[in-house]
């Protein structure tokens, strides 16, 4: 019973978040008489892992953070997943990921980036952390997708186990590669507290995995943190994504994003489910079953050329 009430609450929160985002996208002023131009239609949905303890902040789900921004002919989406282990050191892991995404957003809206170089955007944003008087400590995975409308190409940069999937005609045509040092330990950007630097994995922003891919009208792009990919099996994800190919209605797109997020949330707490995470664990000789409770962020976008 209780479960239903909180599900309802978080669902409404998720929808609120999504609509917020949708409205910012839609109210962004454009000359009224201009013809339709290619763009990305994007919505967001997600859940923090610990719902009760978290203030809901814009652009954040627990330790996850996300942003969408555009500049001239580029639409940029990004997600980052703050590494939770820092909580033991008295550091809020969400701060790092959030700062990273907020800075990316500032850099994009001010045009201080090149659409073909998303890794540089991540790197610039990361170095901006060092320039803050208040040290923002922690670490995070990050994934950024840039759609250049002039060339119909998406440029991506990925560090760690967040990622993206591009679906066309019911098939995955392009997806990110997971970067892990070892099981459940993704590549990560980090700023450790002084004295801890040797104990901490610190991957250079330049080590981001970069790709580029030509997209077509109707392609669906899913950008999500590991809370989604670890819990929702690929086939189910694909079925959902298929249903919004070419979708132009932000509300319908939103409902699919919500259902992916909710599904991930449910499976994460299902202790009998053989999740992708459990499968990977078994492949590494760790005998577990069930989902992996985690923060969940879903950025869902369709390409309209």
């Amino acid at each position: 019973m209780q479960a239903i009430t909180w599900t309802g609450r978080i669902l409404s929160r998720a929808i609120w978040n999504g609509i917020n985002n949708y409205s910012t996208n839609c109210t962004e002023p454009s000359p009224p008489l201009k013809k339709f131009e290619p763009h990305i239609l994007s919505v967001v949905s997600g859940f923090p892992k610990e719902i009760s303890q978290n203030k809901l902040k814009k652009g954040q789900f627990g330790d996850d953070a996300w942003f969408t921004a555009k500049f001239k002919t580029a639409d940029v989406l990004g997600v980052a997943d703050g590494v939770g282990g820092w909580r033991n050191y008295g550091i809020d892991p969400g701060e790092f990921s959030s700062f990273l995404m907020r800075t990316c957003e500032r850099l994009v809206t001010s045009g201080r980036f090149r659409s073909a170089e998303p890794a540089n955007l991540l790197a610039h944003s990361y170095y901006e952390l060092l320039e803050n008087k208040q040290p923002v400590l922690g670490s995070s995975t990050a994934c950024v997708v840039v759609l250049n409308r002039d060339t119909s190409t998406v440029y991506t940069a990925n560090i760690g186990d967040s990622g993206f999937v591009i679906v066309r005609h019911g098939e995955v045509v392009h997806r990110s590669e997971e970067q892990q040092h070892y099981f459940n330990t993704p590549y990560q950007l980090s700023l450790p507290p002084p004295g801890h630097s040797r104990l901490v994995l610190n991957d250079r922003p330049e080590s981001a995995n970069t790709t580029n891919f030509r997209v077509q009208d109707g392609d669906v792009i899913l950008l999500a943190t590991d809370g989604v990919f670890d819990n929702v099996p690929d086939q189910i994800l694909l079925n959902e994504l298929k249903s919004v190919e070419g979708e132009r209605d932000p509300l319908r797109l939103q409902s699919v994003a919500n259902s992916i997020a909710l599904m991930a949330r449910k499976l994460a707490f299902d202790q009998t489910f053989m999740s992708p995470f459990a499968k990977a664990a078994r492949a590494n000789g760790i005998n577990i079953i069930g989902g992996k409770p985690d923060d969940i962020t879903v950025l869902l976008a369709t390409v309209a050329m």
């Binding site: 800075t103 500032r106 850099l107 001010s110 201080r112 170095y127 901006e128 320039e131 803050n132 008087k133």
Partner: peptide, 14 residues
């Protein structure tokens, strides 16, 4: 701030 960054720089006034 420094010219290679945007934190605490003149750029932020825009």
């Amino acid at each position: 701030g420094s010219d290679i960054s945007i934190s605490y720089t003149a750029y932020n006034i825009s």
